[in-house]
C-alpha cells in the first residue's frame, strides 16, 4: 500500500480538525479582546481576567464545581473500578445482563431524563438538595465512564503475572496490591480525570440536583450566556480549557509512562 499520506487525506484531515478546533481557538483569542463587544476586536488586553477574579459569584461557583468534581470523581473511580472487576473477572453472575445494561445506559441516556429522575428521587425521599445531591448525580454518570476505561485495561491484562505471584506464595491481597493495582492504576487515573471533567462540565444534571447556595460554574456560565455575550465568559472558558488541556496531557503522560513496562 501507499506510504505516507495522500494529498486528499491530508486535505480531509486539515478541514476536519479545523472544524473541530477553530471555534475553540476563537473563544480563546477573543478572551484577550479589549472591547466590551465580544466580536469586535479592540486590541489586546487581559482586563477580563482581572474582572473575572473580582467576580465573587463566579469564584464561589467555581469553588463548588471543583469540590463537587473532586468528590464525585473519587467516588466514581472506586465504584467504577469495582464494576469493571465484576464485569471482567466474575464470570456469569446472576443478573449480569441487567448490571451491564445499567452500566451502559447512562452513557447515552439524555441528561434531562437522568436529572429529572434523580430530582424526583431526592424529593420523594425528603432529601434537601445541595452539594451532595449534585455529587450523587455526577457519580452515577462518572462511574459508568470509569468502568468502561478500567474494563478495557483489565481485558488486555496479562494474568500470568498474578498467577506467578500466587505460585510464589503471595496472598490474594498481596497479589492485588503488588501486581494488579499498579497495572490498572493508569486506567484508574484516566477514569478519574474523565469523571472529573464530566462533572466540571455538567450543566443539566446539576441544574436538577442543586439547591440554593450550590450553584455550579456551568450553571453560572449558562445564565450569563443567556443574558448575552461578554468577554468575561471567554476568559473563564479559556481558563477551563487550560485546566482540562493540562489534565488531559497529564492523563496521556501517566498512561504512556506506565504502559510500556506492562506489556
Amino acid at each position: 500500500m501507499k506510504r505516507g499520506l495522500s494529498p486528499l487525506h491530508l486535505a480531509v484531515l486539515a478541514a476536519g480538525f479545523a472544524f473541530l478546533y477553530v471555534p475553540i481557538a476563537l473563544v480563546v483569542i477573543y478572551s484577550f479582546n479589549a472591547s466590551r463587544l465580544v466580536t469586535v476586536w479592540g486590541g489586546f488586553s487581559t482586563q477580563w481576567y482581572v474582572s473575572l477574579f473580582a467576580n465573587e459569584q463566579l469564584l464561589q461557583a467555581a469553588s463548588i464545581s471543583l469540590r463537587v468534581a473532586l468528590a464525585s470523581a473519587a467516588l466514581s473511580t472506586v465504584l467504577g473500578t469495582c464494576a469493571a472487576f465484576a464485569l471482567q473477572r466474575f464470570g456469569r453472575f446472576p443478573a449480569r445482563t441487567l448490571f451491564t445494561g445499567l452500566l451502559y445506559a447512562p452513557l447515552v441516556m439524555p441528561e434531562v431524563i437522568i436529572g429529572l429522575a434523580l430530582l424526583l428521587l431526592f424529593v420523594g425521599l425528603g432529601i434537601d438538595r445541595g452539594f451532595w445531591t449534585i455529587v450523587i448525580g455526577h457519580t452515577t454518570l462518572g462511574l459508568c465512564f470509569v468502568a468502561v476505561v478500567v474494563q478495557a485495561r483489565l481485558a488486555g491484562f496479562d494474568r500470568s503475572l498474578e498467577e506467578a505471584a500466587q505460585d510464589l506464595g503471595a496472598s490474594p491481597a498481596r497479589t492485588f496490591r503488588a501486581i494488579t493495582l499498579p497495572l490498572i492504576a493508569p486506567a484508574m487515573a484516566a477514569g478519574f480525570l474523565l469523571a472529573f471533567t464530566i462533572s466540571l462540565d455538567d450543566f443539566v444534571i446539576a441544574s436538577f440536583t442543586s439547591g440554593p447556595g450550590s450553584t455550579t460554574l456551568p450553571m453560572r456560565i449558562y445564565s450569563q450566556v443567556r443574558l448575552g455575550l461578554t468577554p468575561e465568559i471567554n476568559a473563564i472558558s479559556t481558563l477551563l480549557i487550560g485546566i482540562v488541556g493540562l489534565s488531559l496531557l497529564a492523563a496521556t503522560v501517566i498512561n504512556r509512562l506506565k504502559a510500556p513496562s506492562v506489556r
Binding site: 471555534p23 476563537l26 471533567t197 466540571l200 462540565d201 455575550l229 472558558s237 480549557i241 488531559l248
Partner: peptide, 30 residues
Amino acid sequence: ALVMLAIAPFWTSFLIRIYAWIMLLKEEGL
C-alpha cells in the same frame, strides 16, 4: 496523536463549545 486530537474537544466544556458557535453564528458574529 490523531485520535487524541479528535476526541480532545469532547473534554472541553460542552457549554463553551456551544458558546463558541453563538459567537460565530450571531447576526453580528464572526
